[in-house]
Design a protein around this nucleic acid. Structure first.
Length: 480
RNA sequence: CGAGGUGUAGCGCAGUUUGGUAGCGCGUUUGGUUCGGGACCAAAAGGUCGCAGGUUCAAAUCCUGUCACCUCGACCA
């Protein structure tokens, strides 16, 4: 397709290469994922966007259950006194908490925080529920929304209110808690890579970047197409940092009173932002088949002609019977060309065209969203062929994203190289562990440490920031 | 919080410099022709120009105040 012709088709979306930020806004609004709400910093998630969230929820939730977790629901309001119990936690969250100060017409005795996260609520309840080592572990998760009064917001990436899940567990031993922390990080990585087709770097956060109140924080970091990092999920080991102030004690096997060891882990609707910014292109959204609410759209072509609607519907039914998520688009108010562009914008992985000529020949035209490749396949057995094709698209999209990330990740040995690398990508290099170096990095380059990979094979022996002796392998990047 | 910008039809915008009948595109409605890559023709509906005050014969336009939103910065477990 010529440049000129392509430009005509996509005039509604700002070119990604020209202004990535505006491209993102155009895509999320025009695909109907979200709309802005009449509340500061809040978004309305529309049906198509919510359907993606439901897919993510389903995939995550079944893995949580498979690893022995149960869902619960905690109140949205947290008394101030509870929030104040863990010092670091309070300090970290205080600036962004929204408060309820009045009930009906009466001012409240104690103001109530709208939860920014629920550690304090879970801890309070765990303290009540746990008596003995026999009660452990307790492994609960909740799906809910939280509120953080962020200064600047972007739909899906950072909003005042957002949907997420937060897992909170308590254990007998340090080892068990650490095992849980890493297990859930692995669940996140697996969902990100196999379902969302997001290649991620997993590893441990620095002291400066870790969660307020955690002993250790681990994250998965995804790379967006502008080269910036997006923290796509976190898992924390709290040790006894919360269980001590909250008094979560149990009688051990040896008959001694001990504090429970605690973890928490979370992912949010930010994952949808990650999918958009990792896979989207000039035509709009591209959804990996495993997370696409609609995997195949079937379009009757020249549908006013006799037999076309019925023939195309039969194709859609065949696919649905094979558990393919299919949409039969028989709108007669818009042209076929409009539909092509519409579904490409919405990122549906496969389009099947069924016209009079196709029906005559017992075939259908199949177009891939990921590569724009068009092929003709027999209608007989189409469901099996498309199931295989969807799996291939899933794989292709992951490999594309991985190739992009790898091409934009540079191993660096000094500050100049670091500076060049974080301008549009990730840098991997040695770090001395000093917070002062992180502050300098932030001040000079507006970049941060992302995480330390588990494979700590040294890439050098001096800090890429200060030049002193260093023994930590770190990923650096500018981040959302 | 600092700097800049924008508020005009459902959406996107022009009109403001130089005051003089409220405009355009998309969408919507009705009818017809189309239909294998964003169809066309004809007709129609749709407005407290963010809000308040001031100047003027006359304000979307000038002045003062105010509110909201956006971008960048700062901030961001």
């Amino acid at each position: 397709m010529s440049k000129k012709k392509e430009a005509e088709f996509v005039q509604h979306i700002t070119p990604r290469s020209e202004d990535f930020s505006q491209w993102y806004t155009d895509v999320i609004l025009q695909t109907g994922l979200v709309d802005y709400a009449p509340v500061r910093g809040c978004m309305v998630i529309k049906p198509y966007g919510y359907a993606i969230w439901e897919m993510i929820q389903k995939e995550m939730d079944q893995r949580f259950k498979a690893t022995g977790h149960e869902n619960v629901y905690m109140p949205m309001l947290i008394p101030e006194s509870l929030l104040l119990k863990e010092a670091e936690h309070v300090e970290g969250f205080a600036p962004e908490v929204a408060w309820v100060t009045q009930g009906g017409n009466e001012p409240l005795q104690e103001r109530l925080a709208i939860r920014p996260t629920s550690e304090t609520m879970f801890c309070t309840m765990y303290a009540k529920w746990v008596q003995s080592w026999r009660d452990l572990p307790m492994k609960y998760n909740q799906w809910c929304s939280v509120m953080r009064w962020e200064k600047s917001t972007r739909p899906f990436l950072r909003t005042s209110e957002f949907l997420w899940q937060e897992g909170h567990t308590i254990h007998e031993t340090e080892e068990e808690a650490q095992e849980e922390t890493l297990q859930m990080l692995e669940v996140y990585r697996e969902v990100a890579e196999s379902v969302l087709a997001l290649p991620v770097y997993v590893g441990q956060k620095s002291e400066k970047e870790k969660f307020a109140g955690a002993r250790a924080t681990y994250s998965m970091e995804a790379m967006m197409q502008d080269g910036k990092a997006l923290q796509a999920g976190t898992s924390h080991n709290f040790g006894t940092n919360f269980s001590e102030p909250f008094g979560i004690q149990f009688l051990s096997r040896e008959g001694k009173l001990e504090y429970a060891k605690e973890t928490s882990w979370g992912t949010s609707t930010r994952l949808i932002g990650a999918i958009i910014m990792t896979h989207g292109d000039e035509r709009g959204l591209r959804l990996p088949p495993n997370v696409a609410p609609i995997q195949v759209v079937v379009l009757p072509i020249a549908q006013h002609k006799e037999g076309v609607l019925e023939g195309a519907k039969a194709v859609a039914d065949q696919l649905a019977a094979k558990d393919i998520r299919v949409k039969f688009d028989d709108r007669d108010t818009v042209s076929a060309g409009f539909k092509f562009n519409d579904w490409e914008l919405k990122g549906v992985p496969l389009r099947v065209e069924v016209g009079p000529r196709d029906l005559e020949n017992g075939q259908a035209v199949v177009a891939r969203r990921d590569t724009f490749e068009k092929i003709t396949l027999p209608i007989d057995g189409l469901a099996n062929a498309l199931a295989a094709l969807l799996a291939e698209i899933q794989q292709t999209m992951f490999l594309q994203a991985q190739a992009f990330r790898d091409a934009h990740t540079a191993v660096v040995s000094g500050y100049d190289e670091l500076k060049a690398a974080v301008n549009g990508g990730f840098a991997k290099g040695m770090w001395c562990g000093d917070t002062a170096c992180e502050e300098k990095l932030k001040a000079d380059l507006n970049a941060t440490t992302r995480n330390m990979p588990f494979d700590q094979t040294p890439t050098g022996d001096t800090c890429v920031i200060c030049g002193k002796k260093a023994d930590k392998v770190m990923y650096f990047a500018k981040a959302y």
